[in-house]
Design a protein around this nucleic acid. Structure first.
Lengths: 252, 252
DNA sequence: TATTATCTCATTGTCTGACAATGTCAAACA
DNA sequence: TGTTTGACATTGTCAGACAATGAGATAATA
């Protein structure tokens, strides 16, 4: 539909189209957008960090000279985007970094078995690339962090403890070492969604347990800067998880 | 911090930990979550499509027996996630598909020059993989769609018209043919963000114009099911864009 | 008749004030 | 010292009012 419109339009009046193209959409400014802007300014000025508490609704309303409901609606939209969490009786706390030039990308997924494989498919691609980049770009400090996190992971694993938190931290270190924070962000979100979908029908589980021993090898190649081998091992790890997921889906 | 907590906890009382692990987080149910659920149910039952209008706030409030402000806050969080758009005087319209088992993943990006390269980096990985999958899995119908979209794109391009909409549709067809809708979704979002960041300081522009002729080759390989060559061409296309972006960033 | 200006009305946006529900923290207590 | 209790602060919900705006109907005009 869009393409057709564009076509007929441009073939008819190409000169006019050039004028049109120069126009930029006018931003609609409602009251609570200004509230949001003021909040961002305040958060930046006060240097609030993730986990810090925001002023109460009444304080904000009084200070900004708007009704509390307006404040509430502005905060609600932030809540919808996952930027803040609010607790009755407690307060509102910052849950994500904000800055005057942040953009929020909402993605919707269906919560169903198929999505497990799909999120895993996308996550795999990102994680493989992040691993490759990490093996190339990791700084000395980052290499040490990866090694340290590996030891914690193996420690938990060999003791039979719950190694998932350590696993997340280990991979987080690798993704961070990729030099592009977007990889880490998106992978984390996909990972969370993956777990949400998984936990819902099946309860918690330790997916990919069989792949943990491979992590030692993965860390080794990343740290010594061998991207090809690192990617090979990472692919193996991801494949193990994929096979387990498929097996579980087939059981049902 | 998390890891340490887990560690000390589990080394101390591993048996207890097993009990803990069996617990599932209790869902907090606030009023407006129930409103959301009711809305989803209503939308599914009524078969509302994207672009359709929702009932008015007053109707919803009366029907669900809650205050209008509660409805408004629930809708506001949906608005924050991009599921609906609202217009004073007009009404509320559905802007994205909803279903009872959707999950919404918000990702935040910083709107700055560096982000251009970062979003492009992530998008490249996804787009390359989507191309590879499309070359392998595309159905006959999807191949025809890709060919058709290519013709529209080349038509616009050779006439000197604005080919960007056609370009988006062409790549959309490829991403859809990958068989994993998540690729298309994420690529589209990243693409939008990329444009937002780009347009903000520089006004509109046709990035990657030099890569358009390559698209004919890309379509050919995808349609004839040659993943390796398709990926090679796709990489070339993406590299052209990347070089242009870098050149623009250096100018400033 | 066709086009433009105006008006009305429905709908969302904002404000105020009130009460409910709940987490936090300090004081009282064992 | 550790536990329980209760006051208080904070978010959640409700109701009612008016403002601002967009859309469609109606009237005026060429």
């Amino acid at each position: 539909m869009n393409a057709k419109d564009k076509n007929s339009q441009s073939t008819k009046k190409s000169a006019n189209n050039n004028l049109i193209r120069a126009l930029r959409p006018i931003k609609k400014r409602t009251r609570d957008m200004e509230v949001i802007d003021a909040l961002i300014e305040m958060i930046e000025a006060a240097g609030l960090q993730i986990g810090d508490r925001l002023p109460t609704e009444n304080e904000l309303a009084k200070k900004l000279n708007v009704g509390r409901s307006t404040i509430r609606e502005a905060l609600k939209s932030w809540q919808g985007m996952g930027i803040i969490t609010r607790n009755k009786g407690a307060g509102t706390i910052l849950a994500a970094e904000v800055s005057s030039n942040s953009v929020y990308v909402p993605i919707t997924l269906k919560l169903e078995a198929e999505s497990l494989l799909r999120t895993h498919g996308v996550r795999s691609v990102l994680e493989i690339e992040a691993t490759r980049l990490a093996a190339i770009h990791a700084s000395e400090k980052q290499r040490r962090l990866i090694s340290a996190r590996l030891e914690i992971l193996m420690y938990d694993y060999e003791l039979g403890d719950d190694w998932r938190a350590a696993d997340a931290l280990f991979h987080g270190a690798i993704n961070q070492a990729s030099g592009n924070p977007l990889f880490g962000q998106m992978i984390k979100q996909l990972h969370d969604v993956f777990n949400d979908i998984y936990v819902e029908p099946l309860g918690e589980a330790r997916l990919g347990e069989a792949s943990i021993p491979l992590h030692r090898e993965l860390a080794k190649y990343v740290v010594e800067g061998n991207p090809n081998e690192a990617v090979r091992v990472m692919k193996e790890i991801l494949e193990i998880v994929q096979i387990e997921v498929k097996a579980i889906l087939n059981e049902r």
